[in-house]
Design a protein around this nucleic acid. Structure first.
Lengths: 229, 229
DNA sequence: TCTCCATATGACCACCTGGTCATACCATAC
DNA sequence: GTATGGTATGACCAGGTGGTCATATGGAGA
């Protein structure tokens, strides 16, 4: 990120035009991945000339990095506001709300989530490691702070290894979002085709499962404790 | 899969040559993904002429589908043998062994796992839905049968929704393998850089966490029950 | 009106892609 | 020797890629 990948010319553009270009580029990169994305498609979709693109950005990589910057801004704002809104609740409620916010985010910005998945799984993305660390650190910090709260308030049993819990939460929630966003990904729950209410219900169910497993025995039975076979 | 993507000519080839071609193709497709894979690279790496490739397979898609068939065979055999070997153990021990076998598989066949990840996350893979269902169904069936066993033997508490448990197990174990296989994927545990013993230890830790959460209270305390706060 | 300069343009470049095909090869059969 | 038929070959094709550049445009200042 040393030198800006975007030229001043682009920032002088009328906002409407700027957004048209960003939208077109985002659609292309999220859809096809970095290498497969076609700049010809971007200029066609945004109605500008090929040469103009190179007046706005240094090169293909520059466009991609700029998109990433924009995306990170949106994500950071969303994450902060969720964290703020659920400040008072217990850990598991916070997790459930966070999951709901995630689903909501995907519904609202499917392309941003697509871009994230591309960076996560396409090893040939430029600066992948660097970009990934920026994003994944968000999630890791978020879960770490939640777990810390849970431990200090006694909402999570004290005898579990903290890092394993964070790994587990991250795995389950991220997977849930992937299952919602990607077709044919999830065989068990069919979340990609499910109605919003069902997605929400499955999310609650999953968090409830985590609560039963992670909360101390005394507190876990909020909804009634079951008996072994 | 109706019509075979491989021509008889290929099967008549001396095995050594056949394997050279399969290896080169697997490396290319696993590395770059379907669309980005270059047949020129494949012929260069396997030392055959471009035209020969088209005497062996119908087209690019044919090569890819043939690779998938080969890969599925390897996976199926591995999975069956793991299932067999752990037949007697309790659910959580079976899960731990399965996870270990998965890590082992990745170490032994990194390209096959790479191919799986490509199909899983690259929406532009041909016949993605079909291929994915074939593979994911493996995993889903496997976990389903394990969970069923766990419930009937009283190793898993009876008051949890079965499908949510399967989703959770699938998410956590698959994520663990991804974290081992992909660089810079996992921020929390750093599994991609960890030594084999540490990977194993983290796996045990994770399964232990699942045991504490999912086993009935009476059975969970095998290693000593902790206290809240 | 003329100058200046940021911006806009699309024909053009070298390179790579998946795929084709006329030709050459070579062992067997006669 | 020669005919047969499966196999091997790489020059070649149309189409797409990221990137360039000479030229055109248009508004502000003189």
């Amino acid at each position: 990120m040393e030198t800006s990948p975007v030229r001043p010319t682009f920032l002088n553009l009328p906002p409407e035009k700027r957004e048209r270009i960003i939208d077109a580029a985002l659609a292309e990169f999220a859809d096809k991945g970095y290498e497969q994305a076609s700049l010809n498609a971007v200029v066609a979709a945004s109605g500008i000339a090929k040469g103009s693109l190179y007046q706005y950005f240094t090169d293909k990589q520059g466009i991609f990095l700029y998109l990433f910057e924009v995306a990170v801004g949106v994500v950071r704002r969303t994450l902060l506001s969720v964290k703020e809104e659920t400040r008072e609740a217990d850990v598991f409620t916070r997790l459930e709300k966070s999951l709901g916010a995630g689903v909501d985010f995907i519904r609202r910005h499917p392309r941003l989530f697509g871009l994230y998945l591309r960076i996560l799984y396409d090893q040939r993305t430029p600066r992948r490691q660097e970009l990934l660390q920026a994003v994944r650190r968000f999630a890791a910090d978020y879960f770490t702070s939640l777990v810390r709260q849970g431990l200090s308030r006694g909402e999570i049993r004290a005898d579990v290894p903290r890092e394993a819990v964070i790994f587990l939460l991250d795995a389950v929630l991220d997977r849930f979002l992937q299952a919602v966003a990607m077709p044919a990904f999830d065989v068990t729950l069919g979340l990609d085709r499910a109605a919003p209410e069902e997605v929400a219900a499955r999310g609650r169910e999953l968090i409830e499962l985590l609560r039963r497993g992670l909360a101390p025995p005394a507190a876990a039975g909020a909804k009634g404790e079951g008996n072994p076979g």
